[in-house]
Amino acid sequence: MTDVGIVGYGASIPRRRIKVEEIAKVWGADAESYKKGLMLTEKSVPGIDQDTVTLSVEASKRAIKRAGIDPVKIGAVYIGSESHPYAVKPSGTIVAEAIGAVPECHCADFEFACKAGSEGMFVVYSEVMAGTIEYGLAIGADTSQGAPGDALEYSASAGAAAFIFGTKDICAVCTHTYSFMTDTPDFWRREHQHYPQHAGRYTGEPAYFKHTLGAARGIMKLSGYTPDDIDWYIGHQPNGKFPLRAGKMLGFPKEKLDPGWLVPKLGNTYSGASPIGLTSTLDIAQPGQRILMVSYGSGSGSDAFIFEVTDHINEIRDLAEHTLHQLEYKPIYLDYGNYAKYRRKILKNT
């Protein structure tokens, strides 16, 4: 069977940030307990001119630079997000048009809470494997919002990751995939509601942990690998704590999580979360190393992937901005008033 894997990858993280203290101050909350409870100090905020589509385009442009391919050869563009800018009208067509993949291209927008990004990876992997397309682009991106004052407001952030799958010049071969699903109502948003609702502590054990651990254990069983055989683990990161705890339960030392554990300064980028973690891990991974990525989407399900890094990674990783560099490059800090304006939380006459 032909190897299929990642031939190009890239992330896009907005430069604006808001600190936990700034949000807590407005809602009379104790910043320290949030920082400790969520294990995060700040989160990214999109500019007024940034949304899921613009972040997706920038991440895709980086992926194309690394892949070194002509974008017209991309046969599928899939964006997973829970914050598509239009309720009706695809995001994927805008991205495909902007990168020059049109018109011979399949497009779809995916939605599965925070798992929507890995959905696209799953599908383009399968299409390339089946030989129906030469290259496929999968994007996980969000500019998510928590209800003002809700615990989610401290973490819901913005970012995108894009991956081009193909069969030539692969930097990380996808050796195994596995999915784990049940119907679990831990987090939802009904039509015409501005913000999602969540089921409090029910989002933990029976939701995040059950599916994440289920998928991770399932793929390890399938592959025959133990945590010792895997060099890097990236889990979905709705906060700092959950992925660390899941990693520990699976038997991964924290060092194996560090490169992909961005949540303390990035926040929860929802569909972008584990995919962005994968980009920052690829930025440092060495040939021959194995990476396990497990996404999680409420509702609920997890997709798991095992990648094996090739020699080619050394030739392409510096062709575009590294993810950690974007996270650390001259952040612009907002006060809550500007944050509320940027996130269109202030009612105006229209």
Binding site: R15, R16, G47, I48, D49, Q50, D51, V53, T54, V57, E58, K61, P85, Y86, A98, I332, T350
Partner: peptide, 30 residues
């Protein structure tokens, strides 16, 4: 975009980014 005003000067190197330019009302095209 995203550049403090006091850092902008004639001769500065910049790169293109894809951004939302206009949002037509509450229901119009982006």
């Amino acid at each position: 975009a995203d550049t403090p005003f006091d850092e902008i000067e004639i001769g500065m190197r910049v790169k293109i980014e894809f951004r939302r330019i206009q949002t037509v009302g509450e229901a119009g095209v982006l």
